[in-house]
Structure formats: C-alpha cells, structure tokens
C-alpha cells in the first residue's frame, strides 16, 4: 500500500516537474479556455441574453474544451519515447498509473479553472465571491468526473493513430450527463440557491464520478496491455 502511494505520487511529481520546466500545457489550456469564452461572448448578444443564463454553459464549455487538450497531452507524453511501456514494467499495479495520471490531470485542470474564474467574473459581471464555496464543490465534482472518464479514455485513445480526433468523439457523448448537471448546478448556485436544493444533481454527478472511477479500476488492466 505504501509503495502504491509512493508510486502514485512519483507520477504526479514527475508530471509537475515536467510542467514546471516547460510550462507548455498550462499556458495552452489557459489561453484556449480564454479564447473559447471570448468566442462565445462574440456569438451571443449579451445585451439581449441574460449573462447569468448563458454564463454557466459558456464557462463549462471552456473548461471541457481546454481540459481535453490536457488529456490529449497527458498520455501523449507517456507514449513519446515508450515511457508508458517502462511504466508498465514497473512492479506497480496498473491502477497506480491510472490514479497518478488522474490526479495530475485533475490538479492541472483545477488550477486552470481557478485562474479562469476571476476573468469569468469580470467578463460576465457576475459576483462569484458570494457563492464561492458551493461553486467550488460543483467544480470539484464536475472536474473529477470529467477527469475520471477522460483519463481512462485518453489512455485508450493514445494508442490510436488519430488520437486527437478520437478522444473528443469518444468522450463528449459520454460526458453529457455531467455537462448537463454541472451547468444546471452552476446556474442555480449563481442564482443563490443552496446546494440542498439540488441534491438530485449532486447525486447524479457523484454517482458518475464513482461509477467511472470504479469502471476504470476494473478495466485499466485491459487497456494498459501491449
């Protein structure tokens, strides 16, 4: 068990060391998310539409799109010099690889989201600080679900010739429940409703997270096999 934790943390440490050196991923994700928000602002007439109605949707579309960049990069990095094979040769449970990648994907995406939030607040004139705590819970649940399924599918897609195309095609339809749930919840949170009013959505998101982490633990062995 101790070895398992140190292996997971070694993978996370490695991903962060690389990121601190290159700063490729974070800047790309951040700028991309910003661009998505800008393009949506141009395509929606904010003087006609209520900002708080379209805001949550735009915010999450930006998160998901830039999160996909992160996922694509995540396993491409491992495939580059055959590192994934070396990881598979380690005396490690395959789930350690999954959790290591899941945690580093999750942390990258969360940090990026925390940087986007203030900009979102300014662009849409929505006061987030008032409802910050419930909002963070919603973001946590949604990002976890996205990364749980996304890490599994990106490990799968990384072996395909057309991985950049296939990942979103495989991932997005499966993400529909979580997208609907987080957008709904974000909207309600920003409208000042307490979390207890949306237990069905929280339950749905939490079960999504649990189901897909569970499925990943059970199937990752079959994906990470030459």
């Amino acid at each position: 068990m101790n070895l398992f934790i140190s292996q997971v943390s070694a993978i996370v440490w490695k991903d962060f060391t690389i990121e601190f050196k290159t700063r490729e991923l974070f800047s790309a994700m951040f700028i991309f998310a910003l661009l998505v928000i800008l393009i949506f602002i141009f395509s929606v007439n904010l003087s006609v539409v209520e900002a708080s109605e379209v805001g949550p949707g735009i915010l999450w579309v930006a998160f998901l799109f830039s999160g996909t960049i992160g996922l694509n990069r995540s396993f491409a990095l491992e495939k580059e010099n055959g590192c994934l094979m070396a990881l598979m040769l380690m005396p490690a449970d395959r789930t350690a690889i999954y959790f290591g990648k899941l945690i580093s994907n999750f942390v990258f995406l969360t940090i990026m989201e925390l940087f986007i939030l203030p900009l979102f607040m300014i662009f849409f004139n929505i006061d987030l600080l008032e409802h910050l705590f419930p909002l963070l819970i919603v973001i946590f649940l949604g990002t976890l679900g996205f990364c749980a399924l996304g890490t599994l599918l990106s490990s799968l897609a990384s072996n395909l010739k057309t991985r950049e195309i296939m990942l979103p095609i495989l991932l997005y339809p499966l993400l529909v429940p979580i997208v609907i749930a987080v957008v709904r919840m974000t909207g309600q949170v920003l409208a000042g409703e307490p979390l207890s009013e949306m237990m069905n959505w929280i339950g749905l998101t939490a079960s999504f997270d649990i189901i897909y982490i569970g499925v990943s633990i059970m199937t990752i062995d079959h994906i990470l096999e030459e």
Binding site: K14, T17, I18, K21, T22, L77, E80, N81, G82, C83, M85, A86
Partner: peptide, 9 residues
C-alpha cells in the same frame, strides 16, 4: 529500441 525516458527531465 524505445528509450523510455522523459525528454524534458
């Protein structure tokens, strides 16, 4: 023949 090393490290 694949080196299995991280180029950025």
């Amino acid at each position: 023949h694949s080196t299995a090393l991280y180029g950025d490290l």
